[in-house]
Computed example of a mutant assay.
Amino acid sequence: MPNRSIVIHTTRRQLELYEGNRLIQHYPIAVGKGSTPTPYGRYSIATKTVYPGGVFGSRWMGLSLPHYGIHGTSNPTSIGQAISKGCVRMHNHDVENLFQLVGIGTPVIIQP
């Protein structure tokens, strides 16, 4: 995989994909609600799983922080909100696109 990284902006509710220092894609997201916020920090993609649908949508990319990940959703109206239990939700078509563009070990930076 090229030198790619993910930056998640929780306040803007946006996920950005970089190749080196160049922004190559951005996506709207949903983040954790006040009682279960999305944790700030530096992580990496630890697992990648294809799902047939359901609450995690069609794809799951687990972070190096156990129990947290970037995934699709069965509730597309939740995108843009602070509504999850800490995970980052994406539209299924967006998470499928991102899934193809990143590999295990891709750095993930989560910030305000």
Rank of each mutant, 00 (worst) to 15 (best):
G41Y: 10
Y51F: 14
L65D: 02
G62F: 02
Y51M: 14
P37V: 03
Y68A: 05
T47E: 14
M61Y: 07
P52F: 02
G41V: 07
V50P: 00
G34N: 11
M61I: 08
T47A: 13
I29V: 15
I45P: 08
K33E: 10
H67S: 15
G53Y: 01
K33S: 04
I29P: 03
L63C: 12
R59V: 05
S35G: 11
F56V: 04
W60R: 09
V50M: 11
K48N: 07
Y68V: 01
S64H: 07
L65K: 15
S35Q: 12
A30E: 05
T36W: 11
W60G: 11
Y68G: 11
G62H: 05
G34D: 13
G32E: 03
T38L: 01
R59M: 04
G62I: 06
T47D: 12
T47W: 06
R42D: 13
S58G: 10
R42E: 14
T47N: 12
Y43R: 01
T36D: 12
T49E: 14
Y68Q: 06
K48A: 08
T38P: 07
L63W: 06
W60L: 07
T38I: 06
G62S: 09
L63T: 12
P37K: 08
G53M: 06
S58K: 14
T36E: 13
P66V: 07
T36V: 00
T49Y: 11
R59L: 05
I45T: 03
T47S: 15
G57Q: 09
K33I: 00
M61L: 14
G53F: 01
S35H: 09
S64M: 09
H67A: 15
S35Y: 08
G41R: 10
V50F: 04
R59C: 08
G54K: 01
L63F: 06
G41L: 07
V31H: 02
M61P: 11
T38Q: 04
G41T: 09
K48W: 03
A46S: 15
G32Q: 02
M61C: 11
Y51L: 13
A46T: 00
M61F: 10
R42C: 00
F56R: 03
P66Y: 09
P66T: 04
G53W: 01
P39F: 03
T47K: 13
R42F: 08
K33C: 01
P66F: 05
S35P: 00
R42A: 12
G57L: 10
A46L: 12
S64E: 04
G62D: 05
S58E: 14
T47L: 09
A30R: 04
S58Q: 13
H67T: 15
I45H: 04
A30Q: 06
G32H: 03
G32P: 04
M61G: 12
Y68F: 15
G54P: 06
Y51A: 13
S35L: 08
V50Q: 13
P39V: 04
P52C: 00
I45Q: 02
Y43N: 03
I45A: 06
G62Q: 10
G32T: 02
G57K: 05
A46M: 11
Y40D: 08
G54T: 03
I29K: 01
G57T: 06
K48R: 14
V55Y: 11
R42V: 08
R59Q: 13
Y43K: 01
G34Y: 08
S35R: 12
P39R: 09
I29C: 03
V31I: 14
A46V: 00
I29G: 04
T36Y: 09
V55K: 12
G32D: 01
G57V: 11
T36C: 00
V50I: 15
G34A: 14
K48H: 07
K48P: 11
